[in-house]
Design a protein around this nucleic acid. Structure first.
Lengths: 384, 384
DNA sequence: ATCAATACTTGACGAAGTTAAATATTAAGC
DNA sequence: GCTTAATATTTAACTTCGTCAAGTATTGAT
């Protein structure tokens, strides 16, 4: 990233990260926040300014009792560089172009007919081209592409070890995508990418530890502990969906009993709602409708699901004690039906001070997943 | 710790830690393991040797095809310094003297009649004196004392915020103990101290992430992730005992339902065993006896408890994916009754590759808690 | 004895921080 | 307008802690 060295001085990365995630900050504030001398910040900021990543804002707020030279806050030049992020699902590619501040500039959804590797890669190439050629002139200032895939992914090698939904085994996705697009590619698990996005640019900013729970067909969880994303030694981490919370609950496809996902995954909810309403063709949206109109049998399904999610979240809070937890995902489109039950389940099962952990519950536009992918490639730039 | 600086070069701490935890290692091996040049290791080792913490062993094994100068492994001089560790419970003080390798040299148990702060501190003073004056001449070479207390403890200030069993609130334990003994004192939560001990000197050595589960009256869990002990933002972490695993299970004293502890804590087991056997005076040991002799009703209580523990452990494995998990504690004195059920519960509920996480299940001498306290003070030395 | 192999040490160098002093810019008081 | 106190930033000398490259040490094999 910088002319001289391959790996960059810690202070440079620290300064860049702080300005990116916490907005414009003067050198003195940066120094205090990062535990560095202001001289060190001056030096670290210089190459970043020279390369156009940061710039000085005009002096603004007056500080203190009224005297003193005004600070020159350092801010990110958002349009210095753009990043493509693509979330790959079995039936759709979702692609975005983000600026350096992770703001989405353009988004494209493209349906897929077949999750076959070759077919997906071909579509991916077209999608990336279309994104880069869309109005805005992104191509000239885009060098990086982030990909988010569900399943077991090795971000260091860019290998997709196993993705159940896509039915991919050991696909060297980074290599393929780099050859295809000519961009520098990062590959990450989708939930981890989203967690990263929320940690750097969302509600997790500044939190030393942080958890993101996604509610959808599956129920996932990304964890940041000690400022670092938790990866899990055996490639497993954040599998909140398969925590058992009801010893007599339904059997899960994973072989466990009473898994959160088997109670609160959208498939599980639909199944239950069909059974209770006696309408075997019911869709998720229809079930939501019924519940909103006061159908008690279907409402109880959502209540139980919300409780299960809350209980799973409480397990996270009890075990790792994150500073805050964000609950999100497609399933929360119906979050009015969930929220109180999630909170109730959480508060009942959270132990002691863990109950004080702030919970944000809100739905999430589907592009957010692709933004997560782009965020990972922003991080890759900053760390380089 | 060293003459010049207050904080020591990272390499010095790294070398000391590696030799302490992984045994004698030559400089070249250390360099490879730590990602340093061998020159850096030579320099880092020098002050440690000069101060008597490390020494060179005689060359030993021949390496490679047969040629080359033999290595001079660096080893810890275990008797260079001693450390006192004391575990404080409501009815007992357990004290040990450990050497630098965390080997217990002397242990003393001392009953307490009253968990009042002043009474405990008085006894603590006597206990430390007795330990230091016991045969072995420890006093002259002991500068540090580690204390382990259950409950909410702030290790940076040495404040015991709240300890339910002791009924202590905001006791400045470090300050008091330092004044009392003249030693440099570290204070830590008991489970975290034990986790630290196991991470540095037990089965957790070398693991980048690691979990310790303790089974007793309470059920606790210590976590190491990314090589660092997890502390929890709200002072809560590792509360595996209050994860809810049975939505219809018994109500727990914490207000939750079906908590692991409400099913598998020793008190819960005794309660259940009394009920099922119809003997209201039954003790834990008697219940163990009955189960071992084939009493099916009491045996089922242990089976259910073991399953609950396994299920809680699976939650840890699913969420954080530790490289290994150790299960231990007083409750495991009867581990023959538990083990298969713990493993069964774990394997049923562990998701995917998480089931591959090695599980060590074994009882633990009670002095181990005090050794944990001493270990924390060894760490404090190394980090200084 | 010589050589190849491996372990360790040394000293010059460089990267990346520190501290202390200089410089810049402002508001307030006179 | 001038001075002063306050705050921000920069500069330069210095410190720390590592690397690299070259040397020394010690061994088995030829």
């Amino acid at each position: 990233m910088y002319p001289k060295a391959d790996v960059v001085a810690p202070a440079v990365t620290a300064v860049f990260t702080a300005v990116l995630t916490e907005g414009p900050l003067s050198r003195v504030r940066l120094a205090r926040r990062l535990g560095l001398s202001s001289a060190a910040v001056t030096k670290a900021a210089r190459p970043l300014i020279e390369m156009g990543y940061l710039h000085e804002l005009a002096a603004t707020e007056r500080t203190g009792p009224g005297a003193g030279r005004p600070a020159s806050p350092l801010a990110v030049r958002a349009d210095r560089e753009f990043f493509v992020g693509v979330k790959i699902t079995a039936d759709e590619l979702i692609g975005v172009v983000c600026d350096l501040c992770a703001q989405v500039r353009t988004a494209i959804h493209r349906p897929l007919t077949d999750p076959d590797v070759e077919a997906v890669l071909t579509e991916l190439g077209h999608l990336v081209d279309e994104l880069l050629d869309s109005p805005g002139g992104y191509r000239a200032r885009t060098r990086r592409l982030g990909l988010a895939v569900s399943g077991d992914v090795d971000p260091t090698t860019g290998l997709v070890r196993y993705s159940p939904f896509l039915r991919w085994h050991n696909v060297p996705l980074r290599e393929r995508a780099e050859k295809l697009t000519g961009l520098t590619v990062t590959v990450e698990n989708d939930v981890k990418a989203l967690t990263t996005a929320e940690h750097w640019f969302g509600e997790g900013v500044g939190a030393e530890s942080f958890a993101l729970v996604t509610v959808g067909t599956g129920i996932g969880c990304g964890l940041v502990i000690g400022g670092r994303l938790v990866s899990g030694s055996h490639g497993v981490a954040g599998e909140i969906g398969h925590i058992g919370i009801d010893a007599n609950g339904p059997t899960c496809h994973c072989g466990g009993r009473g898994c959160v996902e088997a109670i609160a995954g959208t498939d599980a909810i639909v199944g239950q709602a069909r059974q209770r309403s006696g309408r075997p063709e019911l869709t998720f949206d229809e079930a939501v409708d019924l519940a909103r109109r006061g159908d008690e049998r279907v409402g109880a399904v959502f209540a139980r699901a919300g409780n299960a999610i809350g209980c799973g979240i409480a397990a996270v809070a009890n075990l790792v004690g994150p500073a805050r937890i964000v609950v999100s995902g497609e399933g929360l489109a119906a979050y009015d039906l969930f929220e109180t039950h999630i909170r109730a389940g959480f508060e009942r099962q959270a132990f002691g001070a863990a109950a004080e952990c702030p919970l944000s519950i809100r739905p999430l536009p589907f592009e957010e997943w692709a933004r997560g992918a782009a965020t990972v490639s922003i991080q890759a730039l900053v760390a380089s």
